[in-house]
Amino acid sequence: MENNLCIAGFGGQGVMTFGKLLATAVCDNTDYNVTFFPSYGAEQRGGTANCYLIISDREIGTPMSDILDDLVVLNQPSYDKFVSKLKMGGRLFVNSSIVKPTSDRSDIQIISVPATDIVVGMGNIKVLNIFMLGVYIGYTEIVPSESIWKSIMEKMAGKPSLVELNKNAFEQGIELGRSQK
């Protein structure tokens, strides 16, 4: 088993936190190997940010694969840049509030979620990444959701007032992800 995931969006949408939380959960709670490789170009606010996450039961060779199994896109430029890298049968998780799928690819699974609209409805756009992480985990079940929640809680240790908001976003994401199967 080797799963190649790319998470991409605007700087500030929480792409790196999404990747790090997932990588931490894999490291702390499973026997899988994992690599997290962030883009670190001369990015600026409003520019794109992306990271690659490989989860494998063998030694990991390349931390940034040319061919993706899974792709999470939170904005249009990321969709345009990465959609062609998804393998046939690959899974695309798309923030449909602000991304219009323009590609004619019919050979991939598309999990389309109006994520920005939903989290704005929750009252805080900053939980977009936690919500999408929930969607991704709910759909793929790549690691148990409890282990991800544990990593989120550890990350939020200094900000107890935000736990409820994040829990709500994560659980709604999980549910939406499961319902799209």
Binding site: K20, A23, C27, N33, F36, F37, P38, Y40, P63
Partner: peptide, 10 residues
């Protein structure tokens, strides 16, 4: 190199 330096691994 920039990969080993910036990537995270267990």
């Amino acid at each position: 190199d920039g990969v080993v330096g910036t990537m995270m691994e267990p």
